[in-house]
Nucleic acid binder design. Structure first.
Lengths: 258, 258
DNA sequence: CGCTTGTACTCCTCTAGACGTCTTAAGACT
DNA sequence: AGTCTTAAGACGTCTAGAGGAGTACAAGCG
């Protein structure tokens, strides 16, 4: 692996020159996914700069999502973010068969091994925003379920959903499958009549926490899917917010015969 | 504007506590878009920490896109992404009735008076990307159609679509309605059998030109809908990219009887 | 009045350390 | 052999400075 020196004649600051050289090492393939970057101590020695300068250079690569620092272990080259176009399938049909589509179906149709982690379930008072979305009274409690979906170990999606505690009604619902349609099937089993739901696709910049959990590159917005499920009386039964890095959502519709 | 102090008993590092407090100031509305954050010197004085600590806190907010630092001027709160919630309607039903959903249907169901401007049509060689998406040969030409949708005079959406010149076949297609389903109805009239299409929702930061045409504020990502229409043989007939500021897309599905 | 200059303020970059926590592996002990 | 301790190496956080460069505005000059 070849690292150059800092060119004092260069008008770019040293930390940027170092970052560029590290980037080049990765782009050239001298270091591939999983490889360890030279440690901070080595880079300090090589370039003859202070520790903060080296850290600032590495921070650039971290913000770009090219490397990941692991406390006590080292800094490692990350898998490149995949931006492949997903193969299209008969999604809409399956969607109708399943009754309600789950956003996370996508992960399962691409050949990845999907799994779920960071499942957290909590019961407590609702925030004003959630109260508004679920049309709850001031003192009603909600059950929140957050989880993260991974494809081949790589986080691709995270979701938080809220149900009125009166709907969750004990422990059954909170253990419901986090897979596609799981929660909705469970709700129907419990006697709730799902009528329809709304989905709203939006986008925004992720918070630091969201960027961390999804291992996002700096400057990349996330696609947000806001879903609300209603019963036949029009009462919201569940709201679910799903976050993904772009590209996010592939639907396929069949054209009906005319 | 109220800023607290650092809680040494808190297990979170000071820089994160400072970042949280600055975030809270923005979330509370004490500082709104365009306002200047307290300068580094003021924050150093207030919290009694070193410069690097303050800078690390502000860096978090910069990474989140909440603030922007301008050399020599200060650090300013950025325009927040709007999270306006749109009223939901029986979208899916209409979608099935219409045969194919158009992304721009939304504008028409919100009570705005929609209209289209900046219609541009051109025929020429395809870029490598478009060639790839339409599966064209090296020397095949494409017809591109770009337009902008306005609601009550306000630009809300823009779209560019490409058809192989062999499909467009003269002047009929290029004058096709830009409204929902218009182009697809025209294609079917011409004997093309539309089979299905894929839609991919993504998001990214807009280019300067896109920001200008959609009159976007700085820091707001755009939702991108990438649609490809296929005929029964699996050949792509049209690709269409639509851009909107978030929020963008509201669907409503009915749950079929079980 | 218009232009230049000075100056204060701002963020940018960097230095040379310090101590902390986490991971790993070697070595000591049972 | 298995378990515990310890130390080295790695990144995390922080201090207390320094000079640089861009900006805004007031003072001075022609």
């Amino acid at each position: 692996m070849q690292l150059g020196a800092i060119d004092r004649a260069d008008d770019r600051p040293p930390y940027r020159q170092i970052a560029d050289q590290l980037r080049a090492v990765i782009d050239r393939g001298d270091l591939v996914a999983g490889d360890k970057l030279p440690s901070e101590a080595v880079l300090i020695e090589h370039y003859g700069v202070a520790r903060m300068t080296v850290r600032q250079a590495v921070q650039e690569l971290r913000n770009e999502g090219r490397v990941v620092a692991e406390h006590g272990k080292g800094t490692f080259v990350r898998q490149p973010v995949q931006v492949r176009r997903l193969a299209s399938e008969r999604f809409a049909r399956r969607h109708r068969e399943a009754g309600l589509a789950a956003f996370s179906v996508e992960a399962q149709k691409t050949g990845f091994t999907p799994n779920v982690d960071q499942l957290e379930i909590a019961t407590g008072p609702a925030s004003p925003e959630i109260r508004d979305r679920l049309r709850l009274g001031d003192d009603e409690q909600v059950v929140s379920r957050s989880r993260r979906y991974l494809a081949d170990g790589q986080p691709v999606e995270m979701a938080v959903s809220y149900l009125p505690a009166s709907v969750a009604a004990g422990s059954q619902i909170v253990e419901a499958d986090t897979g596609p349609g799981g929660i909705y099937a469970r709700l129907e089993d419990m006697g709730f009549e799902l009528d329809h739901f709304t989905e709203e696709v939006s986008a925004r910049m992720p918070t630091a926490e969201e960027r961390r959990r999804l291992q996002l590159t700096d400057g990349v917005p996330v696609v947000v899917l806001v879903r609300t499920a209603y019963d036949t009386t029009g009462r919201p039964l569940e709201v679910c917010d799903t976050l993904k890095a772009a590209p996010a959502y592939v639907l396929e519709y069949d054209v009906p015969a005319r």
